[in-house]
Simulated assay, not measured.
Amino acid sequence: MNLIAVNVSTLRLGQPLPFALRNEQGVLLAHKGYVINDREEISYWTSRGMTLCVDVDAADNHRAYVGKLYEMVRSDTPLGDIADMQLAAADLDKGDAREVSAIPDWTALQIRANGLLRDPQNEQFLPRLDKLYTELNQLVEQHPDATLCALMHLSATEMQMYSATHAMLVYVVCSLAAREVLNWPADLDATLGKAALTMNIAMTAMQDELTLQNQALTAKQIEMVEQHAQRAFSMLVAMGVDNENWLLAVRHHHDRSPGPLGGKTVALRLARLIQRADTFIARLSPRAGRLSMPPNAAMQACYFDEKKHVDEAGAALIKAVGVYSPGVYVRLANGEIAVVIRRSANTTAPRVAVIINREGMPTGEMIVRETNTAIHKIIAHVPHRDVKVQVQLERLLALI
């Protein structure tokens, strides 16, 4: 790691960082793509004596660093000035300023989302929600398969922060269905995203507890579950949210309202898509007291509505995400066990990475396979808890 100081005055507010920001010891302070909205965040670090740095040995930064050194030498810059060189944000901002790293710090993002949604009374809740939505929106636009894979992996491995992960995942699958299948206008995405992220703010902590609970729900818990949509609506109104579609989508996100989306108001279309995604993702996620539902069974529950007819919103979700979403584990016809890493045009034949060979031994290096052939066809879902190999998320995402 080769750390070079960054000129903090060049850090642009409201724009994704074009590099990972570290302190002088190399500790990560903010991942690439993180949005700094005000100077107070920078002051928080600098007032504690930290020097904000960038690792110029990282592949994304090395060429820009060498280029700046070359420019300084060519312009006869004194050697002392070269030795004391600081990088400006623009030096490392190559190409599209909104590009987000394909492998963000997902654990940090999960922790931040969990802290946000557990503290809706915080006066900074709405600005922090805007920031979370913006990051997720960029990730799902630029790296949809990696985003699905990361969130599915986290939902299966970290149940103590289930509610926040679930909310992020519901937004991601809804956003993909809205843009790739339903062709909803792009300017509706922010309302959809913020509704999905805030649908459970009245019961975030309890939802995490229920994920770890083996016993049946108590009468008090049942009451809280039944009232949480209305309570979340009221909390958002009290915060000053005046977007009617956002508010009503939250209020009605548990309504059972089958029928074509075209016959519904915008708010109820959003609510229906969120309701279908909420149900689908919940079935795919494990609990302390039960295994995750096989994807084909979860798909069927989402695909058909309360009247056993094809549900337009549910069908759009399945078409967008696939029968086997990135991040789920599957068994292939040749006996190998793999994790899905990328969707394909054929929703039943995604790309996978093999982690256990046909003899039942870990592969070491993951082997990428296409599943559109007979020998590598997916024949079954494998519950996460049955996979004894520990898969590192960073290595997995690097294959996508």
Rank of each mutant, 00 (worst) to 15 (best):
N37M: 14
D38T: 13
R39G: 10
E41R: 15
E41T: 15
I42M: 08
S43L: 15
S43C: 13
S43P: 07
Y44I: 08
T46D: 01
S47A: 14
R48P: 01
G49I: 05
G49T: 04
M50F: 14
L52S: 06
V56G: 02
D60V: 06
N61T: 08
R63E: 14
V66L: 09
V66Y: 06
V66T: 09
V66W: 05
L69C: 10
L69R: 12
E71Q: 07
M72S: 01
M72A: 04
R74E: 09
S75N: 13
S75K: 10
D76M: 10
T77R: 02
T77W: 02
P78T: 01
L79E: 00
G80Y: 09
G80L: 11
D81S: 08
I82T: 00
L87W: 01
L87N: 01
A89R: 08
A90T: 11
D91E: 14
L92Q: 09
D93H: 07
K94L: 13
K94F: 08
G95Q: 10
G95P: 06
D96L: 05
D96M: 03
E99W: 04
V100K: 03
V100H: 09
A102V: 03
A102F: 03
I103D: 08
P104F: 01
P104R: 00
D105V: 00
D105Q: 00
W106L: 01
